[in-house]
Amino acid sequence: MWVLRRIGVALVLVWIVASVVFLAIRLVPGDPAEIMLSQGGVSPDAAVVAELRDQLGLDRSIWDQYRANFQGLLSGDLGVSLTDQASVSGQVFARLPRTLELIAVAALVSVLTGIPLGLLAALRRGGWFDRLAMGLAGLSLSVPVFVVGTLLVLVFAQWLALLPAGGFTPFRTDPTRHVAQVLMPAITIASSLAPVLFGMTRAAVIDVITRDHVRTARAKGVAPAGVVLRHVLRNALIPVVTVLALHLGTLLGGTVLVEYVFNYPGLSGLLVDAVNARDYPMVQGVVLVISVLFVALNLTMDLVYGVLDPRVRRA
């Protein structure tokens, strides 16, 4: 039952986000068509503006536009780009998998480093390892991603010439190069995600370890490894997963900087270009797809949460 309700809430959220994106563009003071076409203060040609108004249907009532907009959305049509008349959905779905791959690799790296190190630091709380790891996490969290990325390029691509400075090669064309090109941007993203997971794991473990049920496990004579894995880490993962979900969601739109630094043709790069070109349909399409993914991700995480914490399932 709770699954159905979560799905319902998710659908409502998507609808709200789509409406907000739609309205945001229409509610800006002034004529959207004119704003879109004015570049560098030059007033656009009236005929061109009229043509664009017609193409975007801006002369119709807002309700008509809204309906047309949603009919388009439901049939998977996100409109066409203003710059090159390409289909927005085509562009978006060509680039989406690349961004998702980047996020997935970054998440994997972060989970594999942040969680074990957080557990270890918590178990050695106050010791030298804990202090060292806390210091590194704090530092890593303070260096903005585009600085990390730029420095990685400087060191590994320019000075050491170990990895390509950026770009993208399809896996089928050249698997090795594909991996080499995904590696640095993914690590850059992980440099901000891993410390978050580290801190959350550490805090959650420190919290869980003092709970009564851990004492019960020890009273049963369970071996230390079993106590730590089945009773401490297992319960500590619940808040960690929540934080992971939140941050993965933020990453959906937040890889902009990393993609830019590594010249990686992902979804965010598309967005930046569209923003620069004031290509409204494209911006609208990208934002919408990202928001849908964001909501879908939260839904998935709710479901994972239900598996991790049986108490949630009752609600």
């Binding site: 959220l13 709200i16 986000v17 907000v20 994106v21 945001a24 563009i25 800006v28 704003i35 969601g249 933020t250 990453l251 959906l252 739109g253 937040g254 902009v256 900087l257 967005l271 930046v272 569209a274 923003v275 004031r278 409204y280 911006v283 934002v287 990202i290 928001s291 964001f294 909501v295």
Partner: peptide
């Protein structure tokens, strides 16, 4: 809550597009 649904950088980009 609705504003929080948008990733912050994305939200900023969207507004920069408009303004």
């Amino acid at each position: 809550d609705i504003v929080l649904c948008f990733p912050p950088l994305l939200l900023a980009l969207l507004v920069v597009t408009l303004l």
